[in-house]
Design a binder for these strands. Structure first.
Lengths: 154, 154
DNA sequence: CCACAATTCCCCACTTTTTCCCACCCGCGC
DNA sequence: GCGCGGGTGGGAAAAAGTGGGGAATTGTGG
């Protein structure tokens, strides 16, 4: 069965950069799934946390790009320079690399969002700012999101 | 599972030309992997560091190029004249040949980037200049990576 | 072939960071 | 109350990163 993270949880980062993964999200993983994740700088100011299995397909995509093109190299670097392997420890926590703590402006409290194949980690303030800056109701957004591709005039 | 280096790390070169390979990157290698690498002049102003196993395929790719073309010959020569075998010592360090220290303009600090099948080593200033010279955002990179292939118009 | 200098190699040493483990707190159900 | 799972904190041990000395090796000139 396919992974589908969902829900919102608030946890705290300790001064060593460790934070517990919400147990609800952990339980979403297949039993046999490894404790391995990849955490990377995400879009809109959050971090993306991928189970290693999901990351594999991202990596395959990257490897498929034409290495001899300058743009490919640039984008691969941008993409990978903020990606790190992390493992869940015996307490159910991961350690977020210092680089990423800075990138995502994490203080003490962080927000976990389950978003299908990935978990997002936000500074709560950044998230509420993100949502409030985007005026428009859920209903309007839904219209844009669900319009079939071929109807999108460009 | 396939090798996929990732992440960004800053280390220092000592006055003997030695530098530690970030242990995180070392751990990306399979246990049985040898301590042997090939370091060479890379593209865009950095050095490429390939595990010997990955180097094999680079070498195969070079061999596959049409050597009767002038460009191929020039290209191969530039790469190979600046390629050296290096081994990780008992402290987890490699010694970078003087030639390459000059080529890559290394002072004291260097930046390691994990980029899939290779590790790149940069002068930090050269790297930030490289990335600032042309616009390129994570959002754009994400498009390359995540957009289904057929939709990428070329 | 030897003497000498320069470079490399192989350890050891020290500091900082990371990892591992234990302990506690809190809410909940029995 | 008591046990249990989930979340948080901290100390000790281990690993990582850096520097340096001295033996071994290489290269050069006599």
């Amino acid at each position: 069965m396919e992974i589908g993270f969902k829900g919102k949880f608030t946890h705290t980062i300790d001064h060593k950069g460790r934070v517990s993964i919400p147990s609800t999200l952990r339980r979403t993983l297949p039993r046999k799934a490894s404790q391995a994740f990849v955490v990377m700088k995400g879009l809109d100011g959050c971090l993306f946390l991928y189970p290693r299995s999901e990351w594999e397909s991202v990596q395959r995509r990257l490897k498929g790009l034409p290495f001899w093109k300058a743009d490919t190299r640039r984008f691969s670097r941008i993409f990978l320079e903020n990606a790190y392997d992390v493992e869940i420890d015996s307490q159910g926590r991961i350690k977020i690399p210092q680089e990423l703590l800075d990138v995502a402006k994490f203080k003490k409290e962080v927000l976990f969002l389950g978003v299908l194949d990935r978990i997002e980690i936000w500074n709560p303030r950044v998230y509420s700012k993100y949502q409030s800056e985007r005026k428009g109701t859920l209903e309007e957004a839904a219209e844009r999101v669900f319009v079939p591709r071929e109807e999108v005039a460009d």
